[in-house]
């Protein structure tokens, strides 16, 4: 029996009826056609599907969609400001912080949550926070550098805004 799910995704309110068995990632990808969020495993152990729920990094495969009722979800599609990439996204491109790109959405969403909590993380702090994210391509170091680069960009952006 379908149940009502009311939540906000990338700033847009949704009011839909879904089967309770659906995982959040299924609703995002299949119902809302936000396929930027990928899936990498069946055991909740790769963090490829990470999104932000109320600002926190969460695996969208390990949450029933109905559990997101009333919450605010941010996916990779909600990161850019129109055609302008988010500083974290820019930093990922500039630092070659991805290769195949399949785990990248999850990496960026986790970075986004991390940098909100800790605007200036060290290499070790980034490692600690990103530890669940499986990447088979990069060896992680360039991701780590991108995140710290992004931290600098975000801070610069902030001080710029303040100056205005």
């Amino acid at each position: 029996m379908k149940k009502q799910l009311k939540f906000i995704v990338n700033g847009n309110p949704y009011d839909i009826w879904i089967e309770p068995r659906l995982l959040l990632v299924q609703v995002l990808r299949d119902e809302l056609r936000l396929t930027g969020t990928h899936r990498g495993c069946d055991s909740g152990t790769c963090c490829v599907c990470t999104v932000n729920i109320d600002g926190k990094a969460v695996k969208s495969c390990s949450v029933l969609a109905l559990q997101a009722n009333g919450k605010e979800v941010l996916t990779i599609e909600g990161m850019a400001n129109g055609p302008k990439l988010h500083p974290v996204q820019e930093a990922f491109v500039d630092n070659w912080a991805f290769q195949c790109g399949f785990c990248t959405s999850g990496q960026i969403m986790a970075s986004n949550a991390l940098l909100k909590e800790n605007p200036n993380p060290t290499r070790e702090e980034v490692q600690h926070a990103m530890d669940g994210h499986l990447c088979r391509c990069t060896g992680y170091n360039m991701i780590n550098e991108a995140i710290r680069d992004a931290a600098g960009r975000l801070q610069a952006q902030k001080s710029e805004e303040k100056a205005k």
Binding site: R29, L34, T35, G36, T37, H38, R39, T75, I76, E77, M79, A80, L85, Q89, E90, F92, V93, D94, W96, F98, G101, F102, T104, S105, I108
Partner: peptide, 19 residues
Amino acid sequence: TRNVDGPAKVSGEAIYTFD
């Protein structure tokens, strides 16, 4: 040189067969 697929891959717009 920046990856030519970069902007698509960091914005979730890159389409994989999976998508």
